[in-house]
């Protein structure tokens, strides 16, 4: 079985960081699995975990009265799931539901925050990387707002 530190280092969020830094995350991490359909994040519930997805996909979605949720985005392997543990009020904004059997590393958000607060260099590096992922998500979301495959030149 692979060491937790190796698994964490494989994720794009931590890739290339020195082992000493990875070890800070290892202390807050555990392996988790979810069956398809499992609600990993629950809208409105306290947010306390950062998930590094190893396999399977998770749908970020919002429940509708009809019971047919609207899917906002799907998150795939090697990506990061869940940001709401990072800033107050630490509450999940959307549901995160496993589409496939999901394997992930769950990192305790409170634990990680504490370590980032204690070690500013680690905290800065972590936030810098998270910002990169968030920016690319934001840009993708903006591109989707463009209706990229749109039918007309000018609407």
């Amino acid at each position: 079985m692979e060491e937790m530190s190796e698994l964490i280092a494989k994720n794009s969020l931590f890739a290339g960081l020195p082992d000493s830094t990875i070890q800070l995350a290892v202390g807050c991490a555990q392996n988790v699995t979810f069956e398809p359909g499992a609600r990993i994040l629950v809208e409105g519930e306290p947010a306390d975990t950062l998930y590094l997805l190893r396999r399977g996909r998770v749908a970020l979605q919002v429940q509708r009265p009809s019971g047919k949720p609207l899917i906002i985005e799907t998150i795939g392997p090697n990506s990061v799931l869940g940001w709401s543990w990072l800033v107050p009020p630490y509450r999940w904004q959307f549901d995160g539901v496993a589409i496939d059997p999901v394997g992930a590393i769950a990192i305790d958000g409170t634990c990680l925050r504490a370590k980032a607060d204690a070690d500013a260099v680690f905290g800065y590096e972590l936030l810098r990387r998270i910002s990169g992922v968030l920016l690319s998500r934001l840009q993708s979301t903006r591109v989707r707002l463009l209706d990229l495959y749109g039918h007309s030149l000018d609407d």
């Binding site: 749908a59 047919k68 949720p69 609207l70 899917i71 906002i72 985005e73 993708s140 495959y149």
Partner: peptide, 23 residues
């Protein structure tokens, strides 16, 4: 295949095409 908008009947990707062009 990825779509911009979907409901639960869709089991594929949701996101823009560049999001399935990351590897």
């Amino acid at each position: 295949v990825t779509v911009d908008v979907a409901d639960a009947a869709w089991t594929g990707h949701v996101g823009v095409v560049t999001q399935i062009l990351t590897e």
